[in-house]
Design a protein around this nucleic acid. Structure first.
Lengths: 242, 242
DNA sequence: CGAGTCCTTGAAATGGATCAAACGCTGTGG
DNA sequence: CCACAGCGTTTGATCCATTTCAAGGACTCG
């Protein structure tokens, strides 16, 4: 799998426009929450607001890192692969998350970023990040919080999604998915079974069987559309306790 | 497992002395590599240099974070546990690594830090970190590198030590251990089998059997002391390739 | 020397992988 | 509007890797 072939798979983004950070409705939960409106007065490099469809590839492992990304809406997966071909999904990011931080320390991208569910995302050139760090001393604090967030997610991925019997992993995955999407209700849109299997390091078939079990136990029910499910959060948690 | 009981297990450190960062022989590879000697002229809070024996507990998950630690020598493990009792080793740190960074963002410690092999470590109060960050603007850059280092290790833990068949994980673990200890030769001191099993999420018995296999293939050989082994690095790598 | 702790090995039980085939969508073209 | 192709999901049956249980061995410390 060469880089070129990867890039060729990359979806065509829809350019929504120059991001209007000043009036961004959700700025408080985003990267720029610590900045006041005037900070955006004389930004040299433009921040673009983009939309990508499912399966689009936003950046590629090993590729030149010239921007970081802030997710306004949707769901993306970070995958990593080893020289010997082993590949795994190492993170799932939803609204409010920031990715591509390695750009700030001069590293190429460490992951490939692929869209799971239609995503609304802002691309911030590193030049802009550097500028903001210089002009607003507190901004570094905010950035450090995002490093910490990634590290926490990675740690959770290890204990919650990569340890113990598959059933526990699947249950924790469902709970995590509910958490990532942000809003309060108990329904989620599942990913493809191949993706979900890659997340908990199992086979599509096994993942499927576990979900079937949970359905038969009444802990997971069909939702409106196919792929939508309604979860009994307490019940799922209870499975983990004993 | 209450916190109190954990703390009671904590080993008694040997206090070596106030750290003499200025003349630290290995400063170039450590946290303070970007600072010049004069930076240490008027540090308000003291940096202590400590030594802990195997099984000592240096800090505890959920505990008040008031210092970060810089490892000069030895080997420590970071473990994390879930409310339901699941527990796993999530990182292994050797010479040059820094841990407890969450102290810098006001979080309690996210892990429990336990000694695997006798460790020589410096404890740096967060006040000192804040002071250095204020006086030396570039210091934040250095700190960010350590966030990145942890994140890289966590990612590697996911793909290399938590994915695929156990044998591959064991092989990758051996290679990683060789890498962590830093020096160039191909011998390592193994950890306890329970620890190593917890690292690759398997049972002690299975881990043991895999090692036995590798020995019979001649890829791993008994070293001087028991626990010391000599590895055929190329041979081990070759196992992963096909 | 004996007790404790950790390592090693064997045999049986099981969870999960793999292979194979059927099913059910969704979109396309006749 | 229906038929069919294509893709992803579901289910069953078999096989194998890994876990678990059990017991014997080796090293370490007092």
């Amino acid at each position: 799998m060469t880089q070129a072939s990867n890039l060729s798979l990359c979806g065509k983004p829809e350019w929504i426009g120059r991001a209007d950070c000043r009036h961004c409705a959700i700025r408080k939960m985003m990267l720029f929450s610590s900045l006041d409106e005037s900070a955006f007065d004389h930004i040299l490099e433009p921040i673009d607001n983009l939309r990508f469809g499912p399966k689009a590839c936003i950046y590629t492992q090993g590729g030149d890192s010239n921007s970081i990304y802030s997710i306004r809406n949707g769901l993306v997966k970070l995958t990593q692969s080893l020289p010997d071909g082993t590949q795994r999904i190492v993170r799932l990011l939803g609204p409010g998350a920031v990715t591509g931080l390695e750009a700030l320390v001069g590293e190429p991208y460490h992951h490939t970023l692929l869209v799971c569910q239609e995503v609304d995302i802002c691309r911030i050139p590193i030049e802009t990040m550097i500028q903001l760090e210089n002009e607003h001393p507190d901004f570094s604090k905010q950035v450090m919080k995002y490093w910490e967030q990634h590290l926490n997610l990675a740690d959770r991925w290890i204990i919650e999604l990569s340890s113990g019997p598959i059933r526990n992993r699947v249950v924790r995955f469902l709970l995590m998915l509910l958490e990532i999407k942000g809003d309060q209700n108990d329904t989620v849109r599942l990913l493809s079974y191949d993706d979900m299997a890659a997340i908990v390091d199992t086979s599509r078939e096994t993942f499927n069987r576990v979900i079937a079990d949970l359905k038969s136990m009444g802990l997971v029910q069909k939702g409106e559309s196919p792929k939508e499910v309604q979860c009994d959060i307490q019940g799922l948690r209870a499975l983990l306790a004993p």
